[in-house]
């Protein structure tokens, strides 16, 4: 409980340092824009990072595995998955939190003998890191899906007019997951 109180006290400093570390992964001109522009519509990336890390930190303090953690992680990772980052760079921000906590609470950690608590917090951060990998891969898969779907949509009407579309079985329809396409398929084959 001691560590949790300390984290709570140093909340603002930790979040600020963490935010800066994430932004340091961008070129200097970009990170100053991401830092300074506070309007969430003029600066969606800065807003996503800021809201995301705030949310993640709150969840960490709450000590519970809530359903909202993936959403906060997703806010940040979805953006970084299409930016100039390798997979490890895209999710590295979650590990930065460990470094920030250790640096901000360096004195308190050594004075208060709270290594057990620190280990528990760090284990939770590691868990979030694993979740981050999953989210990152899902984002990348989505990009590939979108590319494939675009190709399908471009050719679908042509195939339909050429009567080259056949009706799918129910499991196949479920696989595609588009009711709309199924309707059309039926119309063509009747």
């Amino acid at each position: 409980m001691i560590l949790k109180n300390l984290l709570s006290e140093k909340r603002a400093a930790i979040l600020e340092r963490w935010f800066e570390m994430v932004l340091d992964s961008y070129p200097a001109d970009t990170s100053s824009f991401l830092k300074q522009q506070k309007n969430q519509f003029a600066n969606p990336v800065g807003a996503a990072i800021s809201q995301g890390i705030n949310g993640i930190f709150e969840e960490l303090l709450s000590g519970k595995d809530s359903d909202t953690i993936p959403a906060f992680l997703d806010n940040i990772i979805r953006v970084r998955a299409v930016q100039d980052f390798t997979p490890s760079q895209a999710v590295a921000f979650i590990f930065h939190l460990k470094k920030v906590i250790r640096e901000e609470l360096e004195k308190e950690i050594s004075e208060n003998q709270i290594s057990d608590e620190l280990f528990a917090i760090e284990a939770r951060i590691d868990k979030m890191a694993m979740l981050s990998f999953d989210i990152y891969v899902k984002c990348r898969e989505k990009i590939y899906d979108i590319k494939a779907n675009e190709l399908r949509n471009m050719t679908f009407r042509l195939l339909q007019r050429a009567n080259l579309i056949c009706e799918l079985s129910e499991p196949e329809q479920a696989l595609i997951g588009s009711k709309n396409l199924n309707v059309k398929r039926k119309e063509v084959t009747k």
């Binding site: 961008y26 070129p27 001109d29 970009t30 824009f33 991401l34 522009q37 003029a42 600066n43 969606p44 990336v45 953006v79 299409v82 930016q83 100039d84």
Partner: peptide
Amino acid sequence: CADKCHFFIGGGDPKNM
């Protein structure tokens, strides 16, 4: 104009300013 381009805002590459 620097921070008004959607490519700069979403991608962060300064050459998109």
